[in-house]
Design a protein around this nucleic acid. Sequence first.
DNA 1: TGATACATATCATCCTACAACCTGGCCCGA
DNA 2: TCGGGCCAGGTTGTAGGATGATATGTATCA
Lengths: 244, 244
Amino acid sequence: MKQRLAAIGTVETLPHRVAAFLSREIESGELNPGARLPTEQELSEKFGVSRNVVREAIAQLRADGMIEARQGIGAFVLAPEQRAAIRIDREALKDTHNMERLFELRCILEAESAALAAARRGQEHLDSIKAALDRMGGEERWEEGSIDADLLFHREIARATGNSYIHTFISFVCEQIRHSIHYARMTNPLHNLVEINVGEHVRIYEALVAGDPAAAEAAMRAHIIGAANRVGVKLPLPKSSGAK
Amino acid sequence: MKQRLAAIGTVETLPHRVAAFLSREIESGELNPGARLPTEQELSEKFGVSRNVVREAIAQLRADGMIEARQGIGAFVLAPEQRAAIRIDREALKDTHNMERLFELRCILEAESAALAAARRGQEHLDSIKAALDRMGGEERWEEGSIDADLLFHREIARATGNSYIHTFISFVCEQIRHSIHYARMTNPLHNLVEINVGEHVRIYEALVAGDPAAAEAAMRAHIIGAANRVGVKLPLPKSSGAK
DNA sequence: TGATACATATCATCCTACAACCTGGCCCGA
DNA sequence: TCGGGCCAGGTTGTAGGATGATATGTATCA
């Protein structure tokens, strides 16, 4: 049971906390790009942890391209443009407004990707997508399993584009959304809030089978707008004026 | 001068090398999700480094969500879907085929974002974009400065969407492309390969001023296809069949 | 004045030790 | 025989010091 809790809550380790603190300080602008961080020793004293912990925290920030450490001089904050990784703060996703932004990004990515997938999908891709579709709606289970199948459905479509970067990006965004929905379900007793509309998925699948990019794009767009609505996020006019 | 080299080459630190090794081992599938990593001591012996170095490497992988460490048991490989960060291998970008994929992703992101920006941009956004445009083409310098201005132009448009996630994603993708182009220029003596078409940018800007999403999207799409061609990447029919 | 040598500051790496935690087996009692 | 508690060993988490590598500023000397 404790193990289960650890898997969900992700026990906060000391380096993680230090890294999160520094990260926020940089994001908020208290430490501008080019600024020099306190020395490792100063930080270890400030947080009351060993220098080892501080180093692990800095190693993480450095890997992300947020700071650059130079031997003999110190560590410096880098400009946000030269980040080597994209990382989304899950705390921020508890805000509905941010959820809305994330859904908007997802809509952009997935709609056009669906069009690409319709043009390039092979039979093997269709099979994988169909399998996910069956797992999703076969039984009337609106549970974890169905959500997994839902995500798999979207990932398989992304894979059918043949573009690994698109696959990576879409997988990432979907996973963030899944996480925040999971959180919403934990705090909100309305479990049925998360409801999967199988019909929308079927329409996407049919467009892919037909190899019709425009239809696939439209179906995917409609689906994501619908999905956003079902979790209480109203998506503001994506592609409203540009459609016609 | 040495400082310059350090800023470009990013001196390989031991933890970074260990992390890269483990990362590749996971990506290549030699370590499947759920598998347990060797203990820290075994790894430190295997690589001939201290346990501290191994810990810093593992801390990075853990921050990315590639592995999960449990006290008293060991470290385990996580499924690729639950990554907490997106990280692009710059070595892989030296392959033209990957460049092509990245441009395709960029096209998807930026085209629709341009449409959003056209609908939502305020005067302040137009001013920032115009400033970048002036910096880009004002003087006839196809140098670093112009490339910076080019990137800034795109980032400012992303910012005008009012969606911070879109801004983050586009900044990230653009920066990856900039890096790989920089690398290509170093190895290839054809410096003028990287040429900035000011006219294409002007057309995008005018569509934003007019507040015309469809025109902005089309102009951006044309621009990115053109930019890809200018660096020797032919973009395969994005939005070809779905357009009509 | 100019250049070399030195002292200092800082990060990079290593080492040892202990704490916290999990696993498995052993022992003992019912 | 079975069940439960106890203990030993292994593994990660944290602490603290020691040494090497590198950059900066200063002082000394020709």
